[in-house]
Design a protein around this nucleic acid. Structure first.
Lengths: 197, 197
DNA sequence: GTCTATATCCAGATAGAC
DNA sequence: GTCTATCTGGATATAGAC
């Protein structure tokens, strides 16, 4: 692996664990095993490293979403991949929150020019979830429902970070799974007022 | 107002807008109109200012919750005060997120010793919401439902911060109001119409 | 490409005059 | 109680040797 990639990988991890602003070159240098001065052969500034980290996260998540596209037979099974991600990473989430949400929040507070770039990560999930929901046939409100699932995941990860010692994340995960199950089109047993035409 | 109070007030605002770590004494000094050196007559360290800011937020929210206790006739009306708070502060939320959630997230990333103190702010709302729900007669799951409402508010504020230009916060607020309405014990199951469309 | 050495700046914190 | 002046450390960033 190239030194550049090693820097981006270590910075990605440290930005997540300790925050972008709080992470210094000294921290990254120690993690990679190089000297501080060496950074500037690969990056002109700290912001350039942040940009590379965001790009790395984008391509990483993009690859993951494309892999999920090949999972299961139903959009429900694919949406469950998203929820399962929270379960798999529960320990990290409890300690450091959501890698997307916390970065976005921090850059917003710093009024950082790359804040809008972090939004791309959310857009990635937003549109992928929307496509799954559209596969249910719910075209009109697919985007709103996608935002709803994203909102649930952000609420779950934030609370799990506040109360790391409680089983809150698992409860929220179950709520999300139930929500996905309720998305499935089913014959309406009780009187339903709607379905115009 | 004493200089000490002025410092805490300005620090509270700046910590919220720009983050605790990123806010320097120079920023606070300029906002208050005093010199940097004067801080140390009132506080021994920056962490002491943070502690005072958290105490201020706690007593501030406590007073607000006590005021809400006198609002309306039903627990539903009181819970709506909580949701209305998001609506009233929508512009600040879009720009800086939730004052509780973002502080808690930042202190977790910094591994700051006062991180657990920030949790007190969540506990305040958690127990207040729980009491309102218990007033509905739902004793067993009141705490879980309180966490659910807190989770919704955190998801809503985080997404509103990510997508400040969209009307996402208002949609989430409506979802929360619907959720509160569904909490109300209903005599006739016929009147139950959920939005499963 | 990687290193050491250093420049520059700004942070938190201190000392002491008034 | 407030100020100015200063200490000290750590941050980003640069220069130049190897």
């Amino acid at each position: 692996m190239s030194t550049r990639d090693a820097i981006v990988e270590a910075a990605d991890k440290l930005f997540y664990e300790n925050g972008f602003d709080h992470t210094s070159f000294a921290h990254v240098a120690e993690a990679v095993g190089i000297s501080r001065g060496n950074f500037y052969h690969h990056f002109k500034s700290k912001d350039e490293i942040l940009e590379a980290v965001i790009d790395r996260r984008v391509s990483d998540r993009l690859a993951m979403l494309e892999q999920w596209d090949g999972v299961g037979e139903t959009p429900q099974a694919r949406l469950e991949c998203f929820v399962r991600l929270l379960s798999t990473n529960r320990e990290k989430i409890r300690r450091h929150g959501c890698p997307l949400g916390t970065l976005s929040s921090e850059l917003a507070k710093l009024d950082h020019p790359l804040g809008p770039e972090a939004k791309r990560l959310f857009d990635l999930f937003r549109s992928w979830i929307r496509r799954q929901i559209e596969a249910f046939g719910r075209i009109e409100d697919a985007d709103l429902l996608a935002l709803q699932l994203l909102s649930m995941s952000q609420g779950a990860t934030t609370l799990a970070n506040v109360y790391p010692d409680e089983a809150i994340l698992d409860l929220e995960i179950q709520r999300m799974l139930d929500w996905i199950a309720d998305l499935t089109p089913k014959p309406t047993p009780q009187a339903d007022q709607k379905e115009q035409s």
